[in-house]
């Protein structure tokens, strides 16, 4: 992974593409729950979760590949754990929203769902920011530094 330019770049690109789809879909659903485009049915919009879950799987696969390339760089940086927690909680919220609204046009948007939407936006913003800052805040690039 580390020595192959193609493998590393492919993982990095896949990670970015998948992240754009996951965050984009979550933002759109959250904005709809908050009140944007009220005539757009949330139950129909949740059909896009199919793509969302494929993209989420791609995030974890490409993320694992990037972690394998530079494990010490990520594992010694607290921001890596912040990003990981934000992604996991964000995806749990996605699952909760999907279960609530998918194929259920009769379900009304309650205050809990609106709060979850705000939390979802905050968590995905944390994910994006932590992800970008990871490239600038590491103290250790390679574990061999310690030998």
């Amino acid at each position: 992974m580390r020595e192959s330019g193609v493998a590393f770049f492919s993982s990095l690109t896949l990670h970015s593409l998948a992240m754009a789809f996951v965050v984009g879909i979550n933002f759109t659903v959250a904005l709809r729950l908050i009140g944007f485009v009220p005539r757009l049915e949330i139950s129909a919009l949740s059909r896009f979760y199919v793509i969302h879950w494929y993209a989420a799987a791609a995030i974890f696969i490409s993320g694992a590949a990037l972690l394998l390339a530079y494990p010490a760089k990520a594992l010694t940086n607290p921001l890596f754990y912040v990003k990981l927690c934000a992604v996991v909680i964000g995806l749990l919220i996605s699952k909760r929203i999907q279960n609530t609204f998918s194929n259920k046009p009769e379900v009304l948007i309650d205050s809990v769902s609106i709060k979850l939407a705000y939390l979802s936006i905050a968590l995905w913003l944390i994910t994006l920011t932590a992800g970008r800052f990871l490239a600038y805040t590491y103290n250790t690039l390679l574990a061999s530094r310690f030998y």
Binding site: A20, L128, R132, Y136
Partner: peptide, 23 residues
């Protein structure tokens, strides 16, 4: 923190684009 902050905002804009125009 200037560069990474602006990078984060840049990617946020791209996510908004993919989440709306992409869908």
């Amino acid at each position: 923190w200037g560069w990474p902050v602006v990078e984060s905002v840049h990617f946020f804009g791209l996510c908004l684009l993919i989440g709306t125009v992409g869908l």
